[in-house]
Design a binder for these strands. Sequence first.
DNA 1: GTCAACGACTAATGCGCTTTAGTGTGTTAC
DNA 2: GTAACACACTAAAGCGCATTAGTCGTTGAC
Lengths: 354, 354
Amino acid sequence: MRRTPARRPTIKDIARRAGVSESAVSFALNGRPGVSEVTRARIRRVAEELGWQPSTAARALSGEGAATAGLVLARPARTLGVESFFLQLVSGVQEVLAGRGLGLLFQVVEDLDAECAVYRRWWAERRVDGLLVVDPRADDPRPALLDRLGLPAVVVGALDGRGAPHGAISTLWADDTGAMASIVGHLYDLGHRRITHIAGLPELAHTRRRMACLRAEAARRGLPDVRSVTTDYSDAQGAEATRRELAGDRPPTAIVYDNDVMAVAGLAVAAGRGVPVPAALSIVAWDDSVLCRSTHPALTALVRDTAAFGRHAAEHLLALLDGGPPVSVQDAVPRLCPRASTGPACKGAPWPVV
Amino acid sequence: MRRTPARRPTIKDIARRAGVSESAVSFALNGRPGVSEVTRARIRRVAEELGWQPSTAARALSGEGAATAGLVLARPARTLGVESFFLQLVSGVQEVLAGRGLGLLFQVVEDLDAECAVYRRWWAERRVDGLLVVDPRADDPRPALLDRLGLPAVVVGALDGRGAPHGAISTLWADDTGAMASIVGHLYDLGHRRITHIAGLPELAHTRRRMACLRAEAARRGLPDVRSVTTDYSDAQGAEATRRELAGDRPPTAIVYDNDVMAVAGLAVAAGRGVPVPAALSIVAWDDSVLCRSTHPALTALVRDTAAFGRHAAEHLLALLDGGPPVSVQDAVPRLCPRASTGPACKGAPWPVV
DNA sequence: GTCAACGACTAATGCGCTTTAGTGTGTTAC
DNA sequence: GTAACACACTAAAGCGCATTAGTCGTTGAC
C-alpha cells in the first residue's frame, strides 16, 4: 500500500535539466566560484522550478553540519508545562534559527544526568551542530562535557558570569543581581522591612545569585528580617512556603516569588486566609506573564522580554557556528512593572487572622 | 582556534578493532543475519567500548529515514507561551519518541501558510519521517498536503473524526462532544439556565465541535439563553468577552471558557466588578492546569491527561512509521473536576453592579 | 567423488552532496 | 607562435552507513 509520491528532486535532476554537471549545480547554488553568472542564474531557476532543497542528511554527511541546534529541558514532569518562560524562549530561539535554515531539536528529560546522556547521543549521532543550555547550575558539568565533545553552545542564564568561557561556549546572562536590587528598592521605598524571597531550585545558579543579592541588599539597608526559602518552582511548594511564612510570628509584609506560578499560588493562599493584598501583604513575581495580569489584584512583576532573550541566545549560537569567538554578555536588564499587588507596608499588627 | 576534539567513532573504527569488514559490523549491529553469534557479540562489545552511535545523517542518506518527527505550532507570537497544553503535549510526545531513538524537530510559526511551507521544506530536506499535526481546522489543507508529500502524520485533535483517513494520516481525537455535554449537565444540575461559552479560535475544528454540541445540548434541554462567542484564546480577549457578557441585560449565570488562561482572566474580571464567584457566577475552564488550582476560588475544570494524549499520539505515529495502517481513534474521555468556582445558580436579580 | 547448498564473511555500490583534482578553451604576454 | 594563465566546467573521491552481489570454505545429498 505504500505509495511512491512526489519524488524529491536532487541536484542530479537539476544537472540533467540544466545540461550541466552536478558539481556545477553545487557551485552555482552555494555561491561558489566556478560557474559563469549566466549558468548560475539558469541553474538557480531550474532549482526553483523543481522546488529543490538540499538534503540535510547529505549535507551533514559531507561535513557541513546537521543544520540543527539542540535544546534539552531537564525538568521533572511534575513542574512542567507551567511557566510561560520556556515556550517563549523557544519561540524566540527558533525564530532566529529558522531564519538561517536551522532546525531545533527539542527534548524534555527528567534530570541532569539524562540531559548529559542526550548530549552524548546527539553528538555521536551527529544530530546537532550546537546547543542551547538552560538552567545553569553551580558546579555545572555540562560546559565541560560540551567542550570535550567539541559542541558549540550558548549557556542561557549565566554561570555567574565568572570563569573565562570554555572552548566554544558562550554565556548569555540576565542581570539577576540588578533585578533583585530593583525589587528590594521598590519594596523598601514602600516601607517594607520584612521581606521573604520564595526562590526556585537551590541548585540553579541564578537562584543562588538572587539569594546572594537579596542578602547583600538586606545587609546594606540594615534589614534583619529578610530571608530566602527555596522550592521546586511548583505551585504546590510556592503555596506551602507562603502558608509557612504567613503563619510565623513576624510574617513578612512583602513576598518576592521566583516565578509567576508560585506568585499566583501565593496570592491564592493569601486570599484564602483573608490576608488582603496589597493592604497587608505585597507580592512581587519574577517574570511576567498572562498569569500576573489576570489575577485580582494584578501582580507587580519583573518584566523581561523572554522571546528576545531567546533570539539573542540563538544569535550568539549562530556566531559561534560561524566560527566566532565565545563571548560572555549580559542581556537587557529586566524592568520592574508595578501593579496592584504592591503597596505601602502595613504597620501595626499584621492583619486579622481568620 | 578550532580544536579537533574527540573524534566520533564510525563503523570503520569498529571494523578495524574487531578485525572484520564494515559490512559485518553493519550486519551485527542491526541484527541482520550474515554474522555468527560469536562475532556479533564481539562487534557489539567493541561498539560499546567506543561509544559508537550510528550517524543519523548517514542512516538517513542510505534510505533509513531521518529518525526524526516534526511538530509545528502555528500560533501568533502574542498568544504563545501561556497555555500549559503544548509543553505537556510535547513532553508526552517525545517521551515516546525518545524511547525509539527518534528526535523531535520543533518549530513555531505565525500562521497556517507558514506551517505548510515548513512541511514542504522539511520534506524536501528529508528532515523528518513523520509529523504531528495539531490544531486541526475545518477545511484543513494539511492532511492533503502531507498525503501528497507522502509524509506519515498523526492529526491530534480530530478532523471531526469524519472522512476516511488519508494515505498515511492517522487521527487521534478527544471527545469534545461528550466533554461539553458533561459540562452542560453539571451546570444544568446546579440550576444554571443562562450559559455562555467563551470559545477559542473559530477556525479550529474542535472549537466548532464544542459550539455545535453546546447548541445541541441547549436545544435538547430547552435553554434559549445559551450561546458561544469566539476569541483568539488570549487573556485579553477572554477578559473582554467576559466584560461584554457581564454588562448585558440578562448576563449568564455560568461561563464556560475554552482554555485555562481565559478562565482565569474572566475570574479576574468578575472579581474586579465585585461579582462573587460562584455565588453570582459560575466558571468552568476547559483544560486544567496550575492556573485553575491556584486561583481563589479554584476553578472547576475539565481535566485531561495531556501528556498521555501526547504519548498516544506519538505511539500512533510510530505505528504508521512501522508501516501500520492509518487509524482514527478517540482518546480517553476528559473528566470534569468540580471545584469552588461552580455552585448553584443565582436566582433573582443578577448581582449588585458596582 | 562431484555438485549444490549453506553459513560466514568481504567487496562494491549507492544514497545526495561538497570538494579537490583535473580538462579543455580562449586570452594575454613576449 | 608558443608559453603561461585565467576561466568555465567536468570527473572523481569521500562523508558513514545499508545493502546487494559476490567469495570461500564446509556440509550434505546422491
